[in-house]
Every structure is written in structure tokens, then in C-alpha cells.
């Protein structure tokens, strides 16, 4: 118990990556997020849990302005990345998304080779001066995605030919190729079998050494396994946010207790 608390203490000391203040999100007239305040810390995995429609994915998508692509979506309040307002007019959402990468529910590799999938981001952001540098970036990203050993001999085969779990790790490699600071993951394992899930979870734990990771998951056990901090959303509200070990052993809010013990859906 004490060991665990010490570990948690260490992670609490990392700096704040995202600071969200009074965030409200609307789809037309419907309010999806109600006055959310949360600090997401660096080098730590933060899990968002909650029943379907609770706003956890919506809030995740606010963090790299993915909601900009939905015309009726309106975001109010303030979200700062390293103290900088990401909704400021001067911020280029494309540049923002290079800093805040994203992995989706279903693996969605481009219909290109494994190599080109990973090289895509570094190319458009001009991160490599020549082929050798690009090769290096691709290898590094695939290694971080825990996929290198499995694909190094077939880098020019289509990414869509990989298994589901490999495809998801390819998408993670693609997301880390641009050296992001934050990695957002929206249900990254929901389409994977338990072995592939375990591999991705192991990968998430490794990625934590380098990035701030935010993961939306329907699996509470997954949240418990991979995260250091957990946020419970319900009906658009952030009900409880705290250390994962505390949330799963002794949550403060009765709604959190009901949800994680399987009493409300």
C-alpha cells in the first residue's frame, strides 16, 4: 500500500500538460459537456470512463480540436496546453494535432504501405531532411509502437494487410512519428482481442515515459490497469477525478461507486 502511494505521489508531481477551465460543449442546442475543470499531467496516463453518451469522447476531442470538424459543435471555456490557449485564433489546428496525436477506436491505417503510413506525418510536417532521416524516424516510431520486429522485413507491404492488433499498433506508431507531446486514445482496444489488447496496454505503459496519454475506455478494468489518474464522466459532468487506485478502491462520489461496481449504466 505504501509503495503504491509513493508511486502515485511521484506521478502527481509531474507538470500540468492540459489545463481545462469551465469547458462547456454544445452540439446545436444540446449541451454535451457541462463546466468541466481538469488538469491533465505530463508523463502519465489519464483515463476517461463513464457510460455511453456521458461526454468523455467529446471532451477528449476538444483536446486537439477534433470537434472543429463538426459544424454544429461549439466549445466554450478555456483549454490550455502548456499554458497556451489552444482555441486562440492564432493556433493552427493542424500544428496542434501534430503536438497532440490521436488514435481511434478502429484501426484506420491509410491504404498505403506500412512505411508510408508512418512516414506520412513526418513528411507533411517536414521533420526529415532526407531519406536516411525519414528511415530513422519510421524505425523509431515502429519500435515505440512495439511493431518493428514484426514488420521490419515487409515495410513496403500495405498496412491494411496486418492483423487488427498490428494495425492498431501501426496507428500508434503513426501517431508518435511526429513526436507529439500528448497522445489521445479513443477506445483504442475495443476492436482488439485480449492478446492484442494486452500488447497495446503494455505499449501505453511504455509510452507514458515520454508522453502524456489520455485514454477513453469503456473497460473499467482497462482504465484500472493502464492509468494513474481516472476521470469519471456522467451526463456531461466530470463527477470525480482522482488517482486511479483511489477511484477503484474508495471513490468519493456515490455515482462513481455505482458506475464502477456495475450498478448504473
Amino acid at each position: 500500500m505504501n509503495v503504491m502511494q509513493d508511486v502515485e505521489k511521484q506521478v502527481t508531481d509531474t507538470e500540468i500538460k492540459f489545463a481545462a477551465r469551465n469547458v462547456n460543449v454544445f452540439y446545436g442546442d444540446a449541451q454535451a459537456i457541462k463546466d468541466v475543470n481538469v488538469d491533465i499531467r505530463d508523463k502519465m496516463v489519464t483515463a476517461f470512463i463513464g457510460p455511453s453518451g456521458c461526454g468523455k469522447s467529446t471532451f477528449l476531442r476538444c483536446l486537439n480540436r477534433m470537434n472543429d470538424t463538426i459544424p454544429i459543435c461549439r466549445v466554450e471555456g478555456e483549454i490550455r496546453l502548456d499554458g497556451e490557449d489552444i482555441y486562440d485564433k492564432r493556433v493552427d489546428p493542424v500544428q496542434l494535432r501534430a503536438r497532440v496525436g490521436m488514435v481511434f477506436q478502429k484501426p484506420n491505417p491509410f491504404p498505403k504501405s506500412i512505411y508510408d503510413n508512418v512516414a506520412y506525418g513526418p513528411r507533411i510536417h517536414g521533420l526529415a531532411r532526407n531519406k536516411a532521416e525519414l528511415d530513422e524516424i519510421v524505425e523509431k516510431a515502429l519500435r515505440r509502437g512495439a511493431l518493428w520486429d514484426e514488420v521490419k522485413d515487409r515495410l513496403h507491404e500495405p498496412g491494411t494487410g496486418l492483423s487488427g492488433g498490428q494495425q492498431q499498433r501501426l496507428c500508434i506508431a503513426r501517431a508518435v512519428a511526429t513526436e507529439p507531446e500528448v497522445l489521445l486514445m479513443d477506445e483504442p482496444c475495443s476492436a482488439l482481442d485480449p492478446i492484442a489488447t494486452a500488447q497495446v496496454e503494455e505499449l501505453i505503459d511504455e509510452l507514458r515515459a515520454r508522453y502524456s496519454v489520455v485514454i477513453v475506455t469503456h473497460s473499467m478494468q482497462q482504465a484500472a490497469r493502464v492509468s494513474q489518474k481516472t476521470a469519471f464522466f456522467h451526463l456531461g459532468e466530470l463527477v470525480e477525478f482522482g488517482e486511479t487506485a483511489q477511484i477503484f478502491t474508495n471513490p468519493v462520489d456515490p455515482r462513481t461507486e455505482s458506475y464502477i461496481t456495475g450498478r448504473i449504466g
Partner: peptide, 9 residues
Amino acid sequence: RAPTAGDLR
């Protein structure tokens, strides 16, 4: 059942 929170305690 993988009990959590109050159930786990």
C-alpha cells in the same frame, strides 16, 4: 466478478 470499490472492500 472483478469487484471494485465498495464491493472490493
